[in-house]
Nucleic acid binder design. Structure first.
Lengths: 340, 340
DNA sequence: GTTAGCACTCAATGTGGTCGAGTGCTAACA
DNA sequence: TGTTAGCACTCGACCACATTGAGTGCTAAC
C-alpha cells in the first residue's frame, strides 16, 4: 500500500476537521468538505487503506475515523501550512515592544502571552542560573549592620540577598568591597565562584561575612535544580477542551504538570528549531493524548532555555508552531540586546 | 424558635459530617454520630426547626440536609475549635526557616506552602509598590553605554531596568551618581519621586538619561495596578473536590480567578485579624459556593498585603484558619527582620 | 476505478420500573 | 411535655430495555 496525493489530501482533511470538531470524521462528511469530488464510497475505500497503513483509528465500527499519532506526525512534517494571518503576526511582534523590564518579567510576560495566544498551557524553561556568569557584584547598605548583596549576571538576571556585615562599614566601604570582588569574580560562573571561595582567605572579619554571604547566594543559585527552571502558565486552558470534560482527566493532566523533572525533559530541544512531540512521543504515559511543542531561545549563539506549549494532540499545529517560533525569536532578540 | 445547646451540637455535627463526606446528612446517621443519645425521630424534629431557622437546606424531600451559608457562619463564629495538631503547627513554623531570599521568593514560597498545606487555592496579595519607599538607588555598568539601574526599597523589594548612559561614565562615576540620587530620594515613595522629577533640572546629558531611566522605572512600578498584585497558586486543587466534578463548574471557578480586580476586593481585610467570607458573602456570583479566608501581613505596624485561600464553602475552617493565621504571622516576622 | 444500495453494528438517547434513603406525621409512652 | 416507634410517602439513583441514526463494509453495476 502506498501513499498517493489523494490519500494525503483526505488525511489532511480528516485532521483539519477533527482538530476543529473533535468528532470522528465519517466518509459522507468528508466527501462534502474535502473538495475532491468523489463519493463517500470512494472515500471509504481510501479510509480503509489509511487505517490499514496506521494513519487512522476507528473508535468503534459505526463511528467515523480519527487521526493516529502517526497521522499528526505526517501532518506536521508535510501537510502543515501557514497558520497565522498577517495581522496576527504583527500582534506577536508587538508583544515585547512595550518595554524590557528585568528578565523575570520578560519570562512571565512570555508565559502569559503564549497562553493567551494559543489557548494551550504555556511552558517556559528559564536559563540555568549556575551557568550564568557574574557581571557585577554590589553591596548596598540596608540598615546599620546589614547590607543587600546584589549579583548581576551577564544576561541581566539579578539576584539578591540580605547579609549581616560589620556596622563599621558605610556605603563607600561597601562599594569598595563590591568593586574589589567584582574585579576578582567578573566573568566567572557561579559554580566557579563557589569553588574559588573555598580556598579564599579573608582579610578581615568584615570580609569573611561578605564572602560567606556570596558563597551562600551562589550556593542558592547553583542549588536551583532543573525543576525550579520550569514555569507553567494557563493550565486552566485545557478545561476548555472536551477531551478533558471528565475531571479525572483534567486532574491527571494537572498532576503530570507537577512533575517538573519530566517537563524539563520534554522541553529539551531536538535540533536547532521547533520540536514537536506528539502523543506517545512525549514519553509520558499521562500525556499520551497530548502534544508538546517547544522552541529554544538563545542569547548570542548559546542555548538558554525553551518556551513551549502543551495541549491535546488534537491541536492546531500550524498556528501554534508559528506562534512559538516567532515568540522565541522575539525573546532571543530582546535578550541579546539587554544582556551582555 | 430559639437556639439551644442541643441544636448547636446537632448543627455542628451536620457541618462536620458534611465537610467530610459531601453528602446530605440524614437523621439516622446523625443520631449515631452526634453522640447525643437521642433517636433519629428527635433529631428529625430538631432538624426541622433548624431548617425553619435558616441553618439547613433540604436539596429534595428524600435527601438529608446540608448546611446553609448561615450555618457555616455560625460554625465559624462559635463552633470552631483547634484544627491543627501540635506537630502540624511545628511544621508550619519551620517553613520559612530555610533561608530568607528576596521578597519575591518569599511570596512565591508562601503561595506554594499555603496551597500544599490546605489543599485549597492560595491567594497572595503582594505589597503595593508605589507605596514603597526608596532606600537606595544604584547604577551598575553593564556594557559601555548601558547600565543597570537598581532601586532597593525599604522592605527589600528590588527592581531594576537597563538604561542607556553616556559611555564616558565608568563604574565610579555611576556610583557617584547613584549616591547623589540616593541622598536626594531616600525615604521618598515612588509616587513622590515621579513628581519630584518633573521639576528637576538635569546638570548634564548623562544625568538626564539617568533621570529619565529612574522616572521610567518609578513609573512602571507605580503603574502596577492592584490587579498585578494578586498571585494565585494551586488552582488545580479544586479539581479534587467533588463540587467541581463538572468541568463547567471548574471552569467557572478558574474564570473567576482571572478577575484580579475582584480578588483584590476579596482580600481586603476586615478588622485586624483573619477575615472569613462565606458563600454569598464573597459578593461574587460565581463564587457563591466558595469561601474565602484571608489574613493580613504587615511590616512594623503597617499593612502590606494579605495571604489567603479560596475553596468550597464545605471547607475545613478550623484547620485552614489556623494555618493561615500562623503563616501570616511568620511572614510578618520575616519581613520585619529583613526589611527596614 | 467509481458509485449506489443494502445489511449490519453500536454508541447515544430515551423510557419505564425498582430500590432505598430519608422525611413528616401520628400515636403511644415516660 | 419531650421522646420514640411505626408507617405512608417522596424522589433521586440506578438498571434494563427499546429505539434511533450515523457510519461502516461488502457487493454488484456502471
Amino acid at each position: 500500500m502506498e501513499m498517493d496525493e489523494r490519500k494525503l489530501r483526505i488525511l489532511q482533511a480528516i485532521v483539519d476537521d477533527f482538530v476543529l470538531n473533535n468528532t470522528p470524521v465519517g466518509s459522507r462528511t468528508l466527501s462534502k468538505i474535502s473538495g475532491l469530488g468523489v463519493s463517500s464510497a470512494t472515500i471509504r475505500n481510501e479510509m480503509a487503506d489509511l487505517e490499514e497503513m496506521g494513519y487512522l483509528i476507528q473508535p468503534h465500527v459505526s463511528a467515523g475515523r480519527i487521526p493516529s499519532d502517526k497521522a499528526y506526525r505526517l501532518y506536521v512534517n508535510v501537510l502543515l501550512r501557514n497558520g497565522l494571518r498577517e495581522e496576527e503576526r504583527d500582534a506577536i511582534r508587538r508583544v515585547f515592544n512595550a518595554r524590557v523590564h528585568d528578565m523575570e518579567d520578560v519570562i512571565t510576560l512570555c508565559a502569559q502571552t503564549i497562553s493567551d495566544l494559543t489557548h494551550y498551557t504555556a511552558l517556559v524553561l528559564t536559563p540555568r542560573q549556575s551557568d550564568l556568569k557574574i557581571a557585577n557584584l554590589h553591596l548596598v547598605p540596608v540598615t546599620r549592620g546589614s547590607a543587600l548583596l546584589i549579583i548581576v549576571t551577564d544576561s541581566g538576571v539579578v539576584r539578591d540577598t540580605t547579609i549581616r556585615v560589620s556596622s563599621a562599614l558605610d556605603s563607600d566601604a561597601l562599594y569598595a568591597i563590591g568593586r574589589m570582588l567584582t574585579e576578582r569574580m567578573k566573568g566567572l560562573s557561579l559554580r566557579q565562584v563557589r569553588e574559588m571561595l573555598y580556598g579564599y582567605a579573608a582579610h578581615s572579619d568584615a570580609d569573611a561575612r561578605v564572602l560567606s554571604g556570596i558563597a551562600e547566594l551562589a550556593g542558592q543559585m547553583e542549588k536551583q535544580t532543573d525543576s525550579d527552571r520550569v514555569m507553567v502558565g494557563g493550565a486552566h486552558n485545557i478545561l476548555y477542551y472536551p477531551e478533558y470534560a471528565q475531571v479525572s482527566r483534567a486532574r491527571a493532566f494537572m498532576d503530570a504538570l507537577e512533575d517538573k523533572k519530566a517537563l524539563v525533559q520534554l522541553m529539551r530541544p531536538e535540533g536547532e528549531g521547533i520540536t514537536v512531540r506528539i502523543g506517545e512521543e512525549t514519553g509520558m504515559m499521562e500525556l499520551s493524548d497530548c502534544s508538546v511543542i517547544t522552541a529554544p531561545y538563545r542569547v548570542g549563539r548559546g542555548y538558554l532555555g525553551s518556551i513551549g506549549i502543551i495541549g491535546p494532540t488534537r491541536m492546531n499545529y500550524a498556528r501554534t508552531i508559528e506562534t512559538l517560533d516567532m515568540l522565541a525569536q522575539e525573546l532571543t532578540d530582546i535578550l541579546s540586546v539587554s544582556g551582555t
